[in-house]
């Protein structure tokens, strides 16, 4: 067999594998979205790739049984947006300080951040819960938002990004013009680092939006439930056989993320690469 024929055969084989993986990735999500629009009896009769017309009835059934979707959406949005803002702002600030200023313990501090990226975070949840309980902060959003001030993963990313965009000459020029250090950070650095901040923000938002374990430990009152906690109630007895409504509830929780991904996939995919490898 000649060299080119071999390459061609291998190429066909590769595309077949890629197609199989594509179906594996998309099929479950597609079934989920389609079933959200079908009635329970239709779903029980078999699978379909074409949407049905039972969306409105499913929605009524879903929201009529205590699945307070707007509330959950609002709660999740408040938490995720706050986390995103805090993470981006304070991580940029830390990375900027390490990048631009010289001070003692700088090396130690950045080493600590790199170490913390690798430390399991959920193991201290019991202490965290008792501690928040003692401060009467359980069933509030504070324990879910405030820790975003110290986000080692984001700092690592911010440091990588700043190294590629920050110009020391520009900072010096601003100093000569009489701009204060705090002013330089806000008026020169943040605007320059916008694309990086944006990518960081998407990751912080998605991580917070999808987080189940921490709110599950901290929140116990239904009106404060976040979206993942509401989704968890779909496994309970209330919706036992209401498959259409269950699928709709699941769809509502992932559609916003799918939309964000469809628009910003380039930022996200490049962001993962940037957060892990430096050229």
């Amino acid at each position: 067999m000649s060299y080119t024929t071999k390459t061609r055969l291998l190429r066909i084989f590769v595309y077949i594998i890629l197609a199989i993986l594509l179906v594996m990735c998309v099929f479950p999500v597609w079934i989920l979205l389609v079933n959200a629009t079908r009635s329970t009896s239709e779903i029980q009769q078999g699978i379909s790739l074409i949407p049905g017309n039972n969306l409105v009835a499913n929605w009524r059934n879903l929201t009529g049984r205590g699945f307070s979707i707007t509330r959950g959406f609002l709660n999740s949005s408040i938490i995720s947006v706050s986390v995103t803002v805090l993470t981006v702002y304070f991580s940029m600030m830390f990375a900027y300080a390490v990048h631009v200023y010289d001070f003692s313990y700088k090396k130690f501090l950045y080493g600590l951040v790199l170490l913390l990226v690798l430390v399991p975070t959920q193991v201290s949840i019991i202490g965290f819960y008792r501690y928040m309980n003692a401060l009467k902060l359980t069933n509030t959003f504070v324990p879910l938002i405030a820790p975003a001030i110290a986000a080692p993963g984001s700092i690592f990313f911010a440091k990588q990004y700043l190294e590629s965009v920050i110009l020391k000459d520009l900072i010096d020029a601003a100093r000569i013009d009489g701009c204060s250090e705090i002013g330089i950070f806000h008026r020169i650095m943040l605007p320059i680092a916008k694309p990086g901040a944006f990518t960081m923000g998407i990751f912080a938002f998605v991580a917070s939006w999808n987080n189940f374990f921490t709110p599950f430990m901290i929140i116990s009152k239904m009106p404060k439930y976040t979206l993942p906690m509401l989704v968890q109630t779909l496994r309970g007895d209330t919706y036992r056989t209401e498959y259409g409504s269950i699928y709709l509830g699941l769809a509502v929780s992932i559609v916003p993320i799918i939309i964000v991904y469809a628009i910003f996939s380039k930022y996200i995919v490049n962001g993962i690469a940037m957060g892990s490898v430096k050229e």
């Binding site: 304070f90 991580s91 600030m93 830390f94 900027y96 300080a97 390490v98 200023y101 010289d102 001070f103 700088k106 501090l109 600590l112 951040v113 913390l116 975070t121 193991v123 201290s124 949840i125 019991i126 202490g127 965290f128 008792r130 501690y131 405030a146 820790p147 975003a148 001030i149 110290a150 700092i155 950070f185």
Partner: peptide, 23 residues
């Protein structure tokens, strides 16, 4: 340098280190 890294240090002590030691 200290001012800009202070929020992280405070956040880390309050929300990471203390809960870990307490656990």
């Amino acid at each position: 340098g200290y001012l800009f890294t202070a929020p992280f240090i405070i956040g880390f002590l309050l929300f990471s280190l203390y809960p870990l030691l307490y656990t």
